[in-house]
Structure formats: C-alpha cells, structure tokens
Simulated assay, not measured.
Amino acid sequence: MAVEIAARLRATIRGLEIWQAHPYRRAVDEPPALWAEGAARLLDYGATPEARDPAGPPVLVIPSLINRAYVLDLRPGRSLLRWLAARGARPLLLDWGAPGPAERAFDLEAYGTERVLPALEIARRLGGGGPVAVLGYCMGGTLSAAVAARRPDLVARLVTIGAPWHFASTEGISGGFRAILRAQGPARLEAMLEAMGQAFGAVPVSLFQMLFAFVNPIQAAVKFQRLARLDPASVEAMDFVALEDWLADGVPMTAPAARDLLVDWQIRDLVAAGQWPFLGAPVDAGAIRAPALIVAGRNDTIAPPPLADPLARAIPRARLIRPATGHVGMVVGSHAPARVWRPVGAFLAGRPA
C-alpha cells in the first residue's frame, strides 16, 4: 500500500509539473463588444469567422459569476458559442468580467437590473424587438430561469445547462457541508462574507476554490495523475491544460452577490421555495411561459440531479435531458457536441433534437 501511495503521489506531482511547464497558451480572438458597462461586456459571436449568419437570431448567453465566461469559448473545437454561430445562431455572451468599483455593492438583483436587462434589450433590438432566446450555464442558468420567470414577455426560449435550483439535498460531501452550515445558522456565514468584502473589496477566489474542493476532495490528485499518463503534445493534453488554466483563472465575487449565492440559495434554499427576490419580486418558475430545455448532467457534482432536475419540474413547458457528463464536461467535454450542443442547437432553432 505504501508503494502504491508513493507511486500515485509521484504521478500527481509529475502531472502538476507538466501542466505548469506546458507551452499551451489560450490564443483566441475575441469577437467585438456591442456594449460595455463597468466590468461587463456583451460579445457578439455573430461577428466571428465561424458565424454562418451574422444577423441570425440572437441568443443571450449568461454564464456563471464565479468563473470566467470564456469556458464557453475555450479554444478551437471546444467552443459552444462558435459551434452555435456556425449553425446560424447569433450568440451574445454577457461576459461579467472581474467586479470593479462599479460593481462592488452589487447583489444579484443589481446584476439583473444593471447588467442582464440592458444586455437583453440589446439582443431584442438586434432580433427585431420581440422576445429572444436565453441560454444560461451554471448559476447563469439559474439567473436565466429567473429572468424568464420575472419577464416572460422578453424570453422566447430558455436553455439552462447545469443550473442549480433546489438546494435541500444533503447527499454527498457538498450536501453535508450545506447541512453543517444550516445547523450553525446563516448569520455566521453572512458575517464572514461581509468581513471579506470589507477587507478585500470582494469575496476572494480562494473561498470558492475551497468550496469546489469540498465537493470532490481527491479529484485534483486523480486528474493530474491522468495528465501524467498523456503525451504532452497530444490534443487530450492540450485540452486538459486549457481547462485547468481556466479553472485557475477565477474571479472574485462581490460580497452581496456571494451572500445571495451561499446564504439565500445554498443555505436558506429560497430559490426553489419561490421566495428569492429578483427583478423586483420573488421568482416563481411556474410563471415561465417560454419553451424550456433543462440540461442536467448525470455525473455533475457541482449541480447534481437533486439540485438541477427540480427546475424542469417547476417549469410548465420544460423538457429535461440528462446526458452522461459532468458539470464542465457539458460545455467543453469530448462528448459535449453530441450529447449537449446538438440538442441545444436543435431546440434553439425550433427543431426536434
């Protein structure tokens, strides 16, 4: 056993060394920004070389606030946005950026009114003034569903990928962690987040990295052992490094938004209860009138089925698909084009998958 432990430790260290020394650097030409406010930009993927129709039907894409938006445009061959653009859609990515002075006091309500609604209005103008499709990934999917519920007049179609909704589950390590925090009471976590905001201007990236590590404590060791077994010059190794670079390139979150996410969502479970206020009133998923496609990965550990599936049950016209993929794998994995991108593209175009 000692020999095996030592071998795996060496493989983990070797994988880390390969990652740190790998020559890959992301070199992707960003599309032009149609609008910018504070740290946020609205990037037009209809203007990329891959786009089939630069004036195609707009799709407002809302990513997570926790990680960089470019996971949806990671690198050639691993870009959901360019794939959609090549099939006639006009993806408009709301890139939140890293929060600066303009966003320091933003909670999720402010992000909705000051960032999402203006971006949605631009998408509507480009589409002729009517409702448009909205696609959200991770907590951006939760925000997208909230927009569709609060402003059903603005959303023609809704897609969420890996969007958490119901946080009651205590399954697994992350569920147990939620249970511990609930037992201690939300006030302690609120005070900690407020102190971080005052000390650092925002909640540091390291807090969220620590929380993700709680979900699967041995994941880092296993994945770097896998890299050690790959040819560093292979496409698989390049994909690994690109994704790992993205994971390491996190952004802080404003203290009020972190409080909404970690206390009101995770601890109080206000979203599924219909008590979370957004765009001026509590969110009721039953008010969503747009056709909806909910993509919930069977192997997702960030938004596992007990957290993601209830959104599909709460929306009157929702269709649920459950690909055998993980959270990030749904947008950049080798099986993502067949299992996720293709049904998403068909749904947005109004075709059967």
Rank of each mutant, 00 (worst) to 15 (best):
G326K: 06
A314H: 12
T325H: 10
V332G: 07
H327Y: 13
M330S: 13
P343K: 04
V331A: 11
R319K: 14
I315C: 01
I315P: 02
L320N: 00
T325Q: 15
H327R: 12
T325D: 12
R342I: 01
R339P: 00
V340Q: 09
G326D: 11
R317K: 14
R339L: 15
I321G: 02
G333Q: 03
P316G: 03
V332Y: 11
P323F: 03
V340N: 09
R317F: 13
S334I: 08
V331G: 02
A336I: 07
P343S: 02
L320F: 06
R322K: 15
A338D: 13
H327S: 06
V331W: 12
W341K: 07
V332L: 08
A312M: 04
T325R: 15
H327D: 03
R313D: 13
R339M: 13
V328R: 04
R342F: 00
I315Q: 01
H327M: 05
A314T: 02
L320V: 07
H335I: 06
R339A: 15
P343Y: 09
P343E: 01
R339V: 06
V328P: 05
A314E: 07
A314Y: 03
R319L: 08
P316Y: 06
V328E: 05
A312S: 11
P316Q: 02
P343M: 01
P323Y: 05
L320K: 03
G326F: 08
V340C: 07
H327C: 06
M330H: 08
P323L: 00
I321N: 01
P316H: 05
P316F: 08
A314D: 03
V331E: 10
R339E: 15
P316S: 06
P343G: 05
R317N: 15
R322W: 08
R342P: 00
W341F: 15
V332C: 12
A324L: 06
H335E: 10
